[in-house]
Simulated assay, not measured.
Amino acid sequence: MMATKKRLLLISNSTLHGGGYLGHCQDHIKKFLGEQIKRVLFIPYALHDRDAYAKMARQKFESLGYGLDSVHEVPNPVYAVQQSEAIFIGGGNTFRLLKALYDNDLISAIRSKVFEDGVPYIGSSAGTNVATISIHTTNDMPIVYPPSLHALGLVPFNINPHYLDPETNSKHMGETREQRISQYHEEPNTPPVLGLREGSMLLVEGNKATLLGVTGARLFLRGKPPSEHEPGQDFSFLLMQS
């Protein structure tokens, strides 16, 4: 298997019930970025009010000891990505985010920085969705239309952030999250889907992937029953998907 430099921290959610923005994962972020990195490039495209979003992200990262630049504030987004030390893409609407990444020619720029230069990538919610093969398994409404549903492809599978288990006593008659993912896998040649519950995240370092956080994950493989996994699970085998 070919070695890779990529380093990813793919977080299910930005805010965990009872806590503040990125509070539940801030220790993981600090450990992931380390002391060598001084500034993070933030991509706020998933929300409409990019100024307010950047302000919130900047306050958080500065409290952790990192400077933050927002890509929407610079004249040349591609150049900003090319010069970045680390990249953080936050949550919001995944369709809006992916369209903006295409509109600003950032798909190949981000891929190059991650795969070739080993620049750390942090994604949360929608930012985690776009790190995968496609956004087919997002929970969001298609409020805008990106030119393709194909995403960054930093991992060879899909993720469903904010994964919800069925509620036994619920009177809701719509499909459960598990049923919707099963419908996705009724289509041919669909990749695995990792359902990340809120409070969980996937750390990818080279060819190794590990489930972190305080909640488990549910793995869906086409043609097989879903399986349950606890924090600490080695998911490196998912990186070997063709």
Rank of each mutant, 00 (worst) to 15 (best):
K208V: 13
G206I: 12
E198Y: 07
R177Y: 09
L196C: 08
E167P: 00
R197F: 06
A209Y: 05
T168G: 06
R197G: 00
V193Q: 03
T176F: 07
R218S: 02
H185Q: 09
P191G: 01
K208C: 11
N160F: 03
K171H: 06
G174E: 10
L194D: 03
Q179V: 00
P188L: 15
Y184S: 00
L202G: 02
L194R: 04
P161M: 01
E175G: 12
Q183S: 13
K208N: 14
N207S: 13
Y184E: 02
R197Q: 11
P191W: 00
P192K: 08
G206E: 12
E186N: 10
S182V: 02
A209S: 10
N189L: 08
A217R: 01
R197E: 13
Q183G: 10
G216A: 08
D165Q: 09
M201Y: 13
V193L: 01
N158V: 10
V214I: 15
L196M: 10
M201R: 02
N207M: 11
I181F: 04
L164W: 10
T176W: 14
E205Q: 13
N207C: 09
E175L: 15
L212W: 02
R177E: 14
R180S: 04
P191F: 01
G195F: 07
E186A: 09
D165M: 05
L211W: 03
N169W: 06
V214N: 04
K171C: 01
I159K: 05
S182H: 08
L202K: 02
M173P: 03
K171M: 04
H162Y: 03
R218G: 03
T215S: 08
L164T: 06
V214S: 11
Q183W: 08
E167Q: 06
Y184M: 03
H162A: 05
T168Q: 15
G213A: 04
E186D: 14
L203E: 12
Q183Y: 13
P161K: 01
V193E: 06
Y163V: 08
V193G: 02
L164R: 10
H172E: 13
N207T: 15
